[in-house]
């Protein structure tokens, strides 16, 4: 029981991270109907920017942790957002309305370029970072097993909930959100009634990148090591989460993320850790075959 509870907590933490990345996939898919293959790399870039910002703060002698966290969070969000914007501008916008495979291939190219660009500029070795938020609450003991919620996990969960609230507000209450939803339903019509479609699509990429960058920061704090390759697997899993939740659905992406996080941590705890990625992938294939619309997705009517 205690072991189970601990895995539940770990799974939810991991799931929050996947969910934040998955939202980026789902939003971009919703608006331009395409998988942004480079999204996992945006998350990786977010993680690198957060590590570097921590180092800069360390050099400046800022050691008050809450302040440092806020500064790093803001820097990471802004700078990664710029990366998200740039990726859309270079690799996707010129290809709107082009040959069907072209944007997909350019996305792959972008993903390879970002991954290797970071490898070349930052080095291939893993980047370890000192734990920043330490300690935790012991919920209860059972035998010699403690169920612990670390402060870090609380931080991650609270931050995720806060972001979700802010994000929901952004989508449902602001003009940007309305434009975004309008483009999602009918891009041509939205353009005709005066929505700046290009700008809205750019903003969608920026929003996705911002959320992914927070996930990057969380991973840096949680695991303490990152490298240029983390975007690949995390992107894969977050995409699975988006499909599981129903691609195009924002709550679905979060739900899918949490489920994938839980499945992964329980699989690692009770089965073999080596095959945990295989498990996630198996879920992706099963969902695509038996319920391609996912848990919360709307059925897609083929336009003939």
């Amino acid at each position: 029981m205690a072991y189970f509870l601990q895995q539940l907590i770990n799974g939810l933490t991991l799931g929050s991270i996947y969910g934040l990345i998955a939202i980026g996939y789902t939003m971009v898919y919703g608006i331009i109907g395409m998988i942004n293959f480079a999204h996992g790399e945006i998350y990786m870039i977010g993680a690198f920017i957060s590590v570097i910002t921590f180092l800069v703060l360390g050099e400046l002698g800022i050691s008050y942790i809450p302040l440092a966290l806020v500064v790093v969070l803001l820097c990471t969000m802004v700078l990664t957002g710029v990366w998200g914007w740039t990726v859309e501008r270079i690799a996707y916008r010129p290809l709107r309305g082009s040959f069907r495979l072209a944007p997909l291939i350019s996305a792959i190219g972008m993903s390879i370029a970002l991954q290797n660009g970071v490898q070349v500029s930052q080095g291939a070795r893993v980047k370890p970072i000192q734990p920043i938020i330490q300690g935790g609450l012991t919920l209860f003991h059972q035998g010699d097993f403690d169920v612990v919620v670390s402060y870090l996990q609380i931080f991650i969960l609270v931050l995720t909930v806060a972001l979700m609230i802010g994000f929901t507000w952004l989508i449902t209450r602001t003009s940007l959100g309305r434009q975004q939803r309008a483009c999602e339903q009918d891009r041509t019509m939205a353009g005709l009634v005066g929505v700046n479609v290009d700008r809205t699509i750019s903003m969608t990429f920026v929003m996705g990148a911002v959320l992914a960058s927070v996930a990057g920061l969380m991973v840096t704090l949680q695991y303490g090591v990152i490298d240029f390759y983390i975007g690949f697997l995390a992107g894969m899993k977050a995409f699975t989460a988006a499909v599981l939740g129903g691609i195009g659905s924002l709550p679905g992406a979060m739900l899918g993320g949490l489920l994938i996080g839980l499945i992964e941590s329980f699989w690692s705890a009770y089965f073999t850790i080596e095959y945990k990625d295989v498990a996630t992938f198996g879920i992706l294939v099963l969902v695509l075959i038996f319920r391609p619309t996912g848990l919360l997705g709307k059925p897609e009517v083929e336009k003939v």
Binding site: I90, A91, P94, L95, S98, A102, P103, I105, S106, I108, G109, M110, S111, I112, A113, L114, Q115, N116, G117, Q119, V120
Partner: peptide, 16 residues
């Protein structure tokens, strides 16, 4: 070490 970087960039540019 720049090989893969060049591939990626080339793929994007050629598609565009």
């Amino acid at each position: 070490e720049y090989r893969m970087l060049a591939f990626g960039v080339a793929m994007v540019l050629i598609m565009v």
